[in-house]
Computed example of a mutant assay.
Amino acid sequence: MALPSISSIGATVSILIYFSLPYSITAGENSLHQSPAARSRRPMVFPLFLSQPNSSSRSISIPHRKLHKSDSKSLPHSSMRLYDDLLINGYYTTRLWIGTPPQMFALIVDSGSTVTYVPCSDCEQCGKHQDPKFQPELSSTYQPVKCNMDCNCDDDKEQRVYEREYAEHSSSKGVLGEDLISFGNESQLTPQRAVFGCETVETGDLYSQRADGIIGLGQGDLSLVDQLVDKGLISNSFGLCYGGMDVGGGLMILGGFDYPSDMIFTDSDPDRSI
């Protein structure tokens, strides 16, 4: 009698992981404290299912992100505060400044997306968000990303375009531009030129949400993290510290940092990025 393969067994095995979410971040400090409400809260149970291995060649050609100890001291990093929370807003945001002079935006932190985008001043279908739309005509350092034979272009064949659709059927599309991006006063990084999306159409939740847009941390040519890594500005990693579902806030770090020897890491899967 033949034994079942490991892959077929793995597809049906579930693992239960308990999250008690008892911690919150103290503003201005790098310490965590336990709230009274959290101590009485019952743990949450999430089933995790093993998926079949992905045979895509893309996972072979693009290396996983992994932080080496030496990287944390040899390169700078960007430390950025997180805002909002999952219970009320359904997401965490951070702040980016684009252009010269800088225009501020509140962007949803998304580790599964690769494009960072904000509403453009000439957007034909954009919702009302918490900050004004990006005005490229007011930035002295803005440049459109020109077309070439290997990319998607606008109707005039002059500027590159992007389009993304998400699981909940919301979508974003627009043109690609390049400008100076600033990461805030707590960042060791100086403002850097990077490619981002300037939205012309939003649908679904992207249209109705309060946040301005998305910062994509996934792996891909348009990823803000990958652009900084390719320029040798940061190490190939990022960190997220969430304040808790009912607490909100937190911290995001782009690049390396001093971490304890017993810290546990997970790889970023390029096949799960969009």
Rank of each mutant, 00 (worst) to 15 (best):
A2K: 06
P4Q: 05
P4Y: 04
S5T: 11
S7M: 08
S7R: 12
I9F: 14
S14H: 14
Y18S: 13
Y23M: 06
S24Y: 03
S24I: 02
S24C: 07
N30D: 11
H33P: 05
S35K: 06
A38T: 08
R39I: 14
R41G: 14
M44I: 15
V45L: 15
F46S: 15
P47D: 08
L48E: 04
L48M: 08
F49C: 12
P53R: 00
P53G: 02
P53C: 01
S57W: 13
S57P: 08
I60W: 02
I60F: 07
I62Y: 03
K66Y: 10
L67Q: 00
K69V: 15
K69D: 12
S70M: 03
S70V: 05
S72G: 05
S72Q: 02
K73H: 07
L75G: 02
H77N: 09
S78I: 03
L82Y: 06
Y83D: 09
D84G: 06
D85E: 10
D85W: 03
L86N: 10
L87P: 09
I88F: 11
I88W: 10
G90Q: 15
G90Y: 14
Y92S: 04
T93M: 01
T94A: 11
T94R: 04
L96E: 03
W97C: 02
I98Y: 01
P102I: 02
D110K: 14
S111W: 10
G112P: 14
G112H: 12
S113Y: 08
V115Q: 06
V118N: 00
P119G: 11
C120T: 00
S121G: 07
D122Q: 12
Q125H: 15
C126H: 04
C126G: 06
F134D: 00
Q135K: 10
E137G: 04
L138A: 09
L138Y: 05
L138N: 06
S139C: 07
T141H: 04
K146F: 14
C151A: 09
C151E: 04
N152T: 12
D154E: 07
D155V: 13
D155N: 15
R160Y: 06
V161T: 12
V161G: 01
E163Y: 12
E163H: 15
R164W: 10
E165W: 11
Y166W: 10
H169Q: 15
S171R: 09
G174M: 02
V175W: 07
L176I: 08
L176W: 01
L176V: 06
S187T: 01
Q188V: 02
P191D: 04
R193T: 13
V195N: 00
F196L: 14
F196R: 09
F196A: 08
G197C: 14
V201I: 14
E202G: 06
G204K: 07
D205N: 11
D205S: 11
S208A: 07
G213P: 02
G216Q: 10
G218C: 04
Q219A: 10
G220M: 11
D221L: 13
L222N: 03
D226A: 06
D226H: 03
Q227W: 04
L228V: 09
D230G: 05
K231N: 12
F238M: 04
Y242W: 08
G244P: 00
M245Q: 12
D246K: 13
V247K: 12
G248S: 06
G249K: 01
G250K: 00
M252C: 11
I253R: 02
G256D: 00
F257Y: 13
D258H: 09
M263I: 14
I264G: 03
I264M: 08
I264E: 08
F265R: 15
T266D: 12
P270I: 06
S273N: 15
